[in-house]
Every structure is written in structure tokens, then in C-alpha cells.
Simulated assay, not measured.
Amino acid sequence: MIYKFRIVLDTLDDVFRDIEIEESATLEDLHNSVTQAFGFDGTEMASFYLTDEEWNQGEEIVLFDMSEGMNSVRMMNETSLDSVVDEKNTKLIYVYDFFSMWTFYVELADITEAEDGRDYPNLMFAHGQLPDSPPE
């Protein structure tokens, strides 16, 4: 199955990207797709956060383990999309670059069958330009 996500920058202006990706892909694959879609170089720290329907931030899933073995952490490269997102749990928060705090709302918009001949992940639609600096 293919997950279709809308990724919205937390800003007053409408800045979003629609990405479709295989349900078995990892959160790291989604991270890579989001950074490419918004024009980031992908070298900064990043995390996804589980969330509820009201966008309250929950468990963190990290790109790099900085705990030095002190805590058990969930890693993006070990977490498949279908293990954290489904028809009932459709929302994630994504933060890129903890110095700048680019914050995005990630929402599952649809689940469809894969289309023959299409490569995934796929940037379906882009709207708005990323501002020069992150929103306050």
C-alpha cells in the first residue's frame, strides 16, 4: 500500500508538500523525502514525534541516537511507517534542525494501491516557498 502524506510548515503562509511513499518505508525514508521536497541538505538533526488528534507531542523517534546508551530510543531507520501511522493514527510532528526548529505537521491523507511504473517515494505536489528563516 501507498501512504499519501501532506507535510505542512508551521507558518502563517501556506507552505506544504504532498508526498506518497510505501507503507513499509522507514521514518528515515520519509525524513529524506521531506528534506529533499523542502530543499534542505538533510545533514541536521531531526525527529518525528507521535501525536494525538490535537497535535499534542508524544514519543520522540530520532534520526541519530545521542543518548550514548543511557536511554533506549526509537530510531527512524528502525521504525516503519505502518508501525506508527494508520487509518486511526494519522498525524506526526516533524522537527528539522534543532537550532532553527523547522517544525512541520505531517498528516496521512490517503492510503492507496501502488501504481505500476511509478517510483516511490514521489513528490506529488508542492505549494509555497520555504521562508529564508524558520517561523517564530
Rank of each mutant, 00 (worst) to 15 (best):
H31Y: 11
L30V: 06
T26S: 15
V95T: 14
E136C: 06
V15G: 12
L27V: 07
N77A: 06
L50K: 10
V84R: 05
L12N: 14
R17Y: 07
M45F: 08
L27P: 11
F38N: 07
S100V: 09
P134K: 01
A46M: 07
F5Q: 04
R17I: 03
N56G: 03
P134M: 03
F98K: 06
R74E: 14
Q36I: 03
W55H: 05
M70I: 13
W55P: 05
F16L: 00
D82C: 12
D29P: 01
F5H: 06
D13E: 14
D13P: 02
E68G: 03
V15Q: 04
I111K: 01
K91T: 12
V8P: 00
M124E: 13
M75R: 13
I7F: 03
S133W: 04
D14I: 10
R118C: 05
D10W: 01
F48P: 12
N32A: 09
T112C: 05
N71L: 14
L12V: 10
D41A: 07
A46S: 15
I21Q: 00
N56R: 12
Y49I: 04
L27I: 09
I7P: 07
T11E: 14
F40A: 10
D82M: 10
F99I: 13
I61P: 11
T26L: 04
E22I: 06
A109T: 15
S33G: 03
V34H: 01
S133G: 06
L81N: 09
N89P: 03
G117D: 00
D10S: 11
F104W: 07
S33R: 01
T79K: 03
